Simulated scan of single mutants.
Amino acid sequence: MKHVKKAGSRTRVVTGGAIVAALALGGFGAYSASATGEETAAAPAAAKVDAKNKNTTRSTHLTIEAATKAAQATLDAAEKENQRVSVAVVDRNGDTVVTLRGDGAGPQSYESAVKKAYTAVSWNAPTSELAKRLTNAPTLKDIPGTLFLAGGAPVTAKGAPIAGIGVAGAPSGDLDEKFAQAGVATLGK
């Protein structure tokens, strides 16, 4: 018959502590995984602390409805002048919210529209103005995802950029930008 050595008190404390920690972490994971989005008692206190400390900021974004309205108004303006273009609306972070490719728009127009919108929101300026800056800073064109050609217009709220509208496919960047501005104007109505 074998003798089983009893665990010492130190071993029991360490083992017990490890089990308690594992249960606590497992419980935490279960609570985190089953969060329903409803506020808990701790959430309002955390929000008050952040607001009081001014450690957070809020940003304004276009709704999908507003982005779609602007994109459609842009495409409509181009179609009134018999232009075949693509339109892109990006959010403040440069992420694409909506794109519309008009009937007969060239295959390159889609990507160009996205890049123009991204460029406009990144610098909070029409891309026609930004293209002029290349004379003094030619390496700007090397920034990934940008396109310094006329056709992009920023959308602002309270002076801050919240979106960009890019258009590509018309015979000139001036026309592209004219159509993008039509989309921006729609948002002000």
Rank of each mutant, 00 (worst) to 15 (best):
K6H: 11
P44Y: 00
V14T: 13
E38R: 10
T36V: 09
S59W: 09
T56R: 03
Y31V: 14
V4E: 06
S9P: 10
T56S: 07
K54G: 09
H3S: 10
G16T: 03
D50F: 07
G17F: 06
F28I: 08
R58L: 10
G29S: 11
T57N: 07
K5E: 12
K5Y: 08
A22Q: 03
L23K: 03
G27D: 09
T57D: 05
N53W: 01
A30K: 12
S34A: 11
E39I: 01
V4F: 09
E39D: 13
G27H: 04
A51V: 03
T11N: 08
A41Y: 05
E39C: 00
R10T: 13
V13F: 11
V4Y: 09
K5I: 11
S32D: 09
H3Q: 11
A35K: 14
S59G: 11
A46I: 07
A22L: 15
S9G: 09
E39W: 03
P44G: 02
G37F: 03
V20P: 00
V4D: 07
R58A: 08
A42Y: 06
I19A: 15
N55A: 05
I19K: 02
T57R: 13
V20R: 02
A33K: 14
V20N: 00
G8F: 00
S34H: 07
R12I: 15
L23S: 08
G17I: 02
T36Q: 10
T15W: 09
A30D: 09
A46H: 02
H3P: 01
K52I: 02
A18W: 04
E38F: 09
V13A: 08
A24L: 11
V49A: 14
G16D: 03
I19H: 00
S32C: 08
T15I: 11
T11K: 11
G26R: 04
L23Y: 04
E38H: 14
D50A: 10
S9T: 08
N53V: 01
E38Q: 10
A45K: 02
R58C: 00
S9L: 08
E39F: 05
K5S: 08
H3V: 14
A30R: 11
V20I: 12
G26E: 05
E38I: 05
V20Q: 02
T40W: 04
K48A: 15
S59E: 15
A45N: 02
